[in-house]
Computed example of a mutant assay.
Amino acid sequence: MTDSTTHRGRPSVIIQGVRKRFTLNHALSLKDTVVAWIRRRRLSSTFDALKGVDIVIDEGESVAILGLNGSGKSTLLKLVSGVMEPDEGAVLTRGRVAGLIEVGAGFHPELSGRENVYLNAAILGMSRREIEERYDEIVAFSEIEQFIDQEVKHYSSGMFMRLAFSVAIHVEVDVLLVDEILSVGDAPFREKCRLKFEELIAAGKTLVVVSHDLDMVRELCTRGIVISKGQVVFDGDIERATELVES
């Protein structure tokens, strides 16, 4: 059940015939391996997380990738971000792409919050000049100014998430990928993040969101792509897409 979507702007993301396959290991120990060998059972099998996916996302679009757990949503986002490569097909992007997929993955626990801002921002592609220009804004958004010179290993999970998210969202990007990160944090901070997303959309940035929060994606996105068992089953209006997921 796929709507035909008309692409009027220039594409920001092109996904052509993408297939991603994972190998599943069924032997958890040496004993399992020996038993499987004796009984002539397979030690591994393959699983297609994505099967021939074709999607075009235009510059300035706000798109939600929806579906049940295990449908392939997060895998698709990781392919677009460059964290993974497809086994078949191609993924093309235009401009700078930043993925809020594993927030804080580049943070070092022994370094202070200040040092980690510079480190993580550099990993996300910001130059030192860009970091220095945005440093005060990043810290203010995180609301942990008084703890910024403490080692992050002493941060609570909420403090860590705030700082990591604040760094990521202040990167100058053309395409922003977001994977379920607003499921953590308190309500006021989530609202602040939502408003920041709206600001980026208004500035013409391309937003691709994976989330189970259907109310949020209705507010932020105009287009919904529903994936089931690794295939696109719907691509069109966000209201219709969320209805399909809810049914």
Rank of each mutant, 00 (worst) to 15 (best):
V152K: 12
L214W: 05
V217Q: 09
K51P: 00
I101S: 07
L177K: 06
K51F: 00
L124H: 12
R21G: 00
D54R: 10
D186F: 06
Q146F: 03
A90I: 04
D58C: 02
T93G: 02
F147N: 05
G95E: 04
G67S: 10
M161V: 13
A90G: 09
H108S: 10
T242N: 04
G104I: 02
I123W: 11
V97R: 02
T23L: 07
K192P: 01
V13A: 01
E243T: 12
R129P: 00
C221E: 06
L220S: 09
I14L: 06
S142A: 15
F22S: 03
R19I: 00
D54T: 11
I181Q: 06
R194K: 13
L182E: 08
I181W: 04
S228F: 07
D237V: 02
R194N: 07
V178D: 07
T2F: 07
K31T: 09
C221H: 06
I148A: 09
S228I: 02
K192M: 05
V91S: 07
Y135P: 01
Q231C: 06
M84T: 12
R19C: 01
I201K: 15
L77V: 14
V178C: 05
A36S: 14
S211Y: 07
Y155T: 08
E85S: 13
S166K: 09
T6E: 12
E102I: 01
I65D: 09
F189R: 05
L77N: 05
T206Y: 11
G52I: 00
V117Y: 03
V184P: 11
I138H: 02
I227W: 05
I138G: 01
H26A: 06
R162I: 08
V217I: 13
V63E: 06
V232S: 08
Q150H: 14
K192I: 02
H212T: 09
D32R: 07
V91M: 10
L92M: 14
D3N: 12
I55G: 00
T206P: 05
E110H: 06
L195D: 14
E88S: 14
Y118T: 03
V210C: 12
G204S: 10
L124W: 08
R21Q: 04
D179R: 08
R128D: 11
V175P: 03
Y118K: 10
M161S: 12
E115P: 02
S71Y: 02
V13G: 01
R96N: 07
L100R: 01
I201A: 15
N25P: 00
D32M: 09
T242F: 04
R134M: 03
G204V: 07
G89E: 12
P86C: 11
A49Y: 01
R194H: 09
L220H: 11
S81Y: 01
F234M: 06
L182Q: 11
F47D: 04
Q16G: 00
E132N: 12
E180L: 10
H212R: 10
G82A: 11
A122C: 10
L176G: 03
E219P: 00
D87H: 15
E130G: 03
E102R: 04
M126S: 13
I148F: 11
F107L: 10
F141H: 08
V80W: 01
V245P: 05
D174E: 15
F165M: 09
A187V: 13
I38M: 13
L124T: 08
L77C: 03
E59S: 13
I101V: 12
D215F: 05
A64S: 11
L100C: 03
V184C: 10
I55M: 04
G99Q: 03
F189A: 04
